[in-house]
């Protein structure tokens, strides 16, 4: 089966990132705990923002802001649950 290029993601990603993600719940890939992103422990006195699992300290997400560029990593999260309004 052939694949499509990344442009087909545009619609889906615009949907996701136009909403506030903090009430979304997700599973920590470290310990499996499911919690809202708003409950994460976030460290900001660092070269980037680091969100850690409130249960096990595992790194859930990082944001590195270089001004004109920004890196987002969500590798510590799986199954991010978003509720439609």
């Amino acid at each position: 089966m052939t694949h499509l290029d990344g442009n087909v993601l545009a619609g889906a990603l615009a949907d996701i990132f136009s909403v506030d993600l903090t009430p979304a719940s997700a599973r920590c890939t470290g310990c499996g705990a499911v919690a809202q992103l708003a409950e994460a422990m976030v460290y900001t006195n660092a070269p980037g923002i680091v969100a850690r699992c409130a249960t096990c300290d595992h790194v859930l997400a990082t944001v590195v802001d270089a001004g004109d560029r920004l890196w987002l990593s969500l590798t510590g999260l799986s199954g991010i649950e978003l509720r439609r309004a």
């Binding site: 460290y43 006195n45 660092a46 070269p47 980037g48 680091v50 850690r52 300290d57 790194v59």
Partner: peptide, 8 residues
């Protein structure tokens, strides 16, 4: 000497 830390 600023303290930077990405965790506990």
């Amino acid at each position: 000497w600023p303290v930077l830390s990405a965790g506990p």
